[in-house]
Structure formats: structure tokens, C-alpha cells
Design a protein around this nucleic acid. Structure first.
Length: 433
RNA sequence: CGGGGUGUAGCGCAGCCUGGCUAGCGCGCCUGGUUUGGGUCCAGGAGGUCGGGGGUUCGAAUCCCUCCACCCCGACCA
């Protein structure tokens, strides 16, 4: 994509409505525009990030044996009356009537619909377990939306649901999802820590929140220092259960088993939440199969959420500097930012054009700044956008037959001969994969 | 919903208290020139129902009433 024709409306100054850095940077880098309180239009750059995150999630969910479906954003009130949540859910649920005066709602979550779907279509224990997920927009009419996409009213969420024959099997599924979540966050390039969550009326110990550590996080987390010695990629549910890690609402200092000198505290942004539901919904909405003995068996359910649009903000909170965003490779809207430092120079333009063509031909995604601007402005914009690698083509390096590679995160620069620039860039990108 | 605040050009703001002629400034945008390895400089230009409605007045961005929107603090959440 050439920057001269790309729709990336960047702002030099920070809009006053944005209070936290991720919101400011998302507006400044042209990822989103606000439509109303808690509602956003996703511009090309922001949408690419959303899609990249979604695709990482798909890859890992599919690998874990979950199958993607897509449910309607609109739901009939009926199902919620069956589950009993139509009354209890409260004003967060956006309710309305269609032309036939039927009561409808915009889905804030999908347990009712998915459980009813299971009820209609799955009849035998032989089909179990079933794990389904979708990536779909939700609407929760929050009392106070804030912090940009971190707490929007409309938000993109990956919600997964599992159906198992009994508690033991459901627990295994939960465990699979637990490790899948750790893999997802690692693949996204962020460090998310699992903490025990409030299981509410269901009880039990099978519910975890996943938090990205960031100073601007909404929740305070308290955890055993021993957690820091564990590679999240190898963390198991059993380990997580044995070590202390709580979000603030669950942390009661008097009851905390960790000695003060080993108790760490950081702030976190909740980006995922997994639950075991037992038969809460499967009873009411009849997610029941015929068992081996011919008798009906009520399935044990679990639900697994990830805030996809919130992740965009959370990743920026965890990964930025004074100059702008620093995208982890897996979610970056483009892999490479190619900058022609002197568009009025025929040689620079020729080299940059050719590099753009050859990189693109290899399937590398490139944002090519072909505009005739001041060097400072171009570099500042590219830093703001935060693509992992910058390829700079300018007169100085070209005199030596070289182009310059800059790592956005470390700021490290290296010069490579023009003759093997494409190969070198390809090599760098592979290292990161 | 309770408390606090803000709406003036794409963005950031001044003007309002103490009403007065074509409503200003910076950035951005357009044109011409200049400059060219970290947001250059100069000149010219386009762009505004001053959030909406009502009122007071000879006259309203400014005063009064009312409605709306957005932001911040609190309870709630992916």
C-alpha cells in the first residue's frame, strides 16, 4: 500500500477526548474514529490489526479442536426468558421491538443462543465433546464507556462454548482452553497472566481471567513472585492453581497465603476470561444428549471469552514509546514500513519503487511512504504507526550502495547492500515468526 | 444515575465574565517558491449553521431558558 493514496488520517495533535495513551495513539495513528459514546468506526489500519488478532485466535482455537460458527448479533428475547436472564441481566442489555412487536435484543453474550443451537442439533453422547466459537460484535450498554476501545459499548469478542458429558471431561476441556489461551497471547506477542477469578454463584475453582500487564490497567493484580520464574508458554493449569494470583476483587490481604516479601503487585488489563458453568444453561435450555445407557445426560458447559477489540488497545498500552505504537510482529497492520526519504530524487525513487515491488511480490505486506515530504515528518509518521521494521531509502546510504533497516522497538539500525536487501528483509521477518 | 466539566474550521485552542462592524490564532489542507537524513522557512488561498431550539435586545459566540452530545470521578464489565 502506498501512503500517498492510503486512507490513514494521522493527527499531529492529540484529540482532547482521549485520556489514555492507547486511545490517543489509536486516534493519532488513524486506526479508529469515534462515532458516539463507546462506538467506533474502524479505519483500514485498525481493521487490519483487528483481523490479524482474529486470525491468530482462529489458528489456535482451530488447533485446539474448536470449530468456528457465526451467530446473529440480534437475538429473540424468548431464549433469555427461558434462561431466566431476561429479567436479571439489567440495563446493560440493549432491548427493542421489531415491527411485529416481538421483543428483541442485541446480544451482549451468546450462551442462550449457542445452548439452544446445541439442543436443536446434537442428540448423542457420541458427538461429544463439542467446542464452538465465534468472533462477533457484542453490545453492552455500559453505564460509562471510556478509554476508547478498552471499554466500548460495542466491541468485538471471541466467545467460545464447550459441551461435555460430565465434570471430569469438562475440566479437561477447560484445561485445554487454559493452555490455548496462553498460546494465543504469546502468539500475539503479549504477556498475559492468568489470575483466579470470582466464580460467582456457580462456585468452584474453574474460572480464570487473563490480564495484560500495563501500568494503566484497570485491575490491580496480586501474585506470588514465583510466577515470574515460569515461562507462560509452559504454564499448566495445575501450576496456576497451586500458585497465588488474584485480581483485586479476589485478593483479601488477611487471607493471603503468600508472605509479604514474595507478594508482587502489578496492574493489568483483562483481555480474556474463561469459566466452567456446570449445567447452569444446559439444564434450562436443554442441552441434553442421550447417554450410552440410553438415558438423557445434561451436558457440562464452559465459556471462553477474549476481548478482541479491547486487545488492540491493551497491546498498545503494553507496547509503545514516546514516538508512537510499537506493534508486535503478529498483529502489525503491515510488516514493513518502506520510506523513500527523498521522493524528488530519481535514484531514490527508482530504488524504493523497485524494493516495494520485490517485497510485495514475495508476499510481504509493505506500507510504502512515497510522498514528497520532509524527512522528519516522514520518519515521525512512520514511528507513530509503529510497524516493526522500517526500510529507509535515502541518498546518503545509496551513495554506498546501501539501504537502511531500522527496528522500531529497539531503534537499532543496520545498513545492508542494496543487492541483497530483499533477501535480508525476508530473513529478518522469518526470525520473528 | 449522582458529582464535575466541555461543545467556536479536520486537530489543538483564544474570544464569553464586561453583548457591537467582514469571529481570531497555531497545526493540518490547497497554490507558488524555498529547504532536504528527525515535524524547514516565506507568500498567497480555501475552509465556520460559534452543538440544536426558543427568548431578551436596535444588535447575541457572548446574557436567560430548554434540549442534545461528548469527556472526567463513582457502582458495572471482554
Amino acid at each position: 500500500m502506498k501512503l500517498s493514496t492510503a486512507y490513514i488520517p494521522v493527527l499531529k495533535e492529540t484529540p482532547s477526548e482521549a485520556q489514555i495513551v492507547s486511545h490517543q495513539l489509536m486516534l493519532r495513528a488513524g486506526l479508529i474514529r469515534q462515532l458516539g459514546a463507546g462506538m467506533y468506526t474502524w479505519l483500514p489500519l485498525g481493521l487490519k490489526v483487528l483481523q490479524n488478532i482474529s486470525n491468530v485466535i482462529r489458528r489456535e482455537m482451530d488447533a485446539a479442536g474448536s470449530q468456528e460458527i457465526l451467530m446473529s448479533t440480534l437475538q429473540p428475547a424468548e431464549l433469555w426468558q427461558k434462561s431466566g436472564r431476561y429479567e436479571s441481566y439489567g440495563k446493560e442489555m440493549l432491548r427493542f421491538k421489531d415491527r411485529h412487536e416481538r421483543e428483541m435484543l442485541y446480544g451482549p453474550t451468546n450462551e442462550e443462543v449457542v445452548t439452544d443451537l446445541f439442543h436443536q442439533t446434537v442428540k448423542s453422547y457420541k458427538a461429544l465433546p463439542q467446542l464452538w466459537y465465534q468472533i462477533q460484535w457484542k453490545f453492552r450498554d455500559e453505564i460509562r464507556p471510556r478509554f476508547g476501545v478498552m471499554r466500548g459499548r460495542e466491541f468485538l469478542m471471541k466467545d467460545g462454548y464447550s459441551f461435555d458429558l460430565d465434570y471430569e471431561r469438562a475440566r479437561k476441556t477447560y484445561e485445554t482452553m487454559f493452555t490455548t489461551y496462553l498460546r494465543i497471547f504469546k502468539a500475539l506477542g503479549v504477556n498475559a497472566v492468568p489470575v483466579k477469578a470470582d466464580s460467582g454463584p456457580i462456585g468452584g475453582d474453574l474460572t480464570h481471567e487473563f490480564h495484560i500487564l500495563a501500568d494503566t490497567g484497570e485491575s490491580a493484580l496480586y501474585y506470588d513472585a514465583a510466577f515470574e520464574d515460569i515461562d507462560p508458554a509452559t504454564l499448566t493449569l495445575a501450576q496456576a492453581q497451586s500458585l497465588y494470583a488474584m485480581a483485586d476483587e479476589m485478593h483479601i490481604p488477611e487471607n493471603c497465603p503468600v508472605p509479604p516479601e514474595r507478594l508482587k503487585t502489578r496492574r493489568g488489563i483483562e483481555v480474556g476470561h474463561i469459566f466452567y458453568f456446570a449445567t447452569k444453561y444446559s439444564e434450562k435450555l436443554e442441552a441434553v444428549v442421550t447417554g450410552e445407557d440410553g438415558q438423557p445426560v445434561t451436558t457440562h458447559m464452559g465459556a471462553y471469552g477474549i476481548g478482541v477489540s479491547r486487545l488492540v488497545g491493551a497491546i498498545i498500552e503494553a507496547s509503545h514509546d514516546k514516538d508512537g505504537i510499537i506493534w508486535p510482529a503478529a498483529v502489525a497492520p503491515f510488516q514493513i514500513g518502506l520510506v523513500n526519504l527523498k521522493a524528488t530524487d530519481a535514484q531514490c525513487t527508482k530504488v524504493a519503487d523497485e524494493l516495494y515491488a520485490s517485497l510485495t511480490a514475495q508476499g510481504i505486506t509493505v506500507l510504502y511512504d512515497d510522498k514528497d515530504d520532509r524527512v522528519g515528518a516522514k520518519l515521525a509518521t512512520m514511528d507513530l504507526l509503529g510497524l516493526p521494521w522500517q526500510v529507509l531509502v535515502g541518498q546518503k546510504s545509496l551513495e554506498n550502495g546501501q539501504i537502511e533497516l531500522k527496528n522500531r522497538k529497539t531503534g537499532e539500525k543496520s545498513f545492508v547492500p542494496l543487492s541483497n536487501a530483499t533477501a535480508e528483509i525476508q530473513h529478518l521477518l522469518n526470525l520473528k515468526l
